[in-house]
Design a protein around this nucleic acid. Sequence first.
DNA 1: CTATGGATTCGCT
DNA 2: GCGAATCCATAGA
Length: 180
Amino acid sequence: MTLHLDDVLTAARGLLGRRLRSTVGGVCCEVVLTEVEAYDGPNDPASHAFRGPTPRNQVMFGPPGRLYVYRSYGIHWCMNVVTGPRGRAEAVLLRGGIAVAGRPEMELRRGRAKHLTDGPGKLTQALGITGEHNGIDLLAGGEITLLDEKPVPGLIRATPRIGISRATEREWRFLLEVDD
DNA sequence: CTATGGATTCGCT
DNA sequence: GCGAATCCATAGA
């Protein structure tokens, strides 16, 4: 099953079980994505793109497959995969994953051995991703890469999105339950 | 220019 | 469970 980034809901579900690789700092770290949220650009009151293009969200309006990184609560970095045709400003927030490679490096970056990748800020920090990675192409085999391979199978559940105050009725958070 | 508050996390209780 | 930490994009004057 090849990576599908055309419409944001399909893309969000399709990203579950995929490997995301970071080689930031020369160390290879990988996670399997298990928690994502879809944001539907200007049609979605909870999206950063709801009010149209701004300096911060311009990457969302660009081509799909790019990384949109923003600062959250002044402290954390969070990352999205841009989906949909250019100009649509759809994006999938990467919220959590399972560490499958480079665990020691992630523990170092996180400053702890547990809760390495179970939250958007944590996942981003564990992979060494910051604002300087905003806009990079995830499909070009660069420092951050979304591997296009068979996803890890599991049961997909949908729930309301977390930490937002608008459009909470949309069950656009997707979780992958993998058997170990 | 200034005010506001958020797609969060952590530490302490 | 609760509140602090802490930046800056955005909106309103």
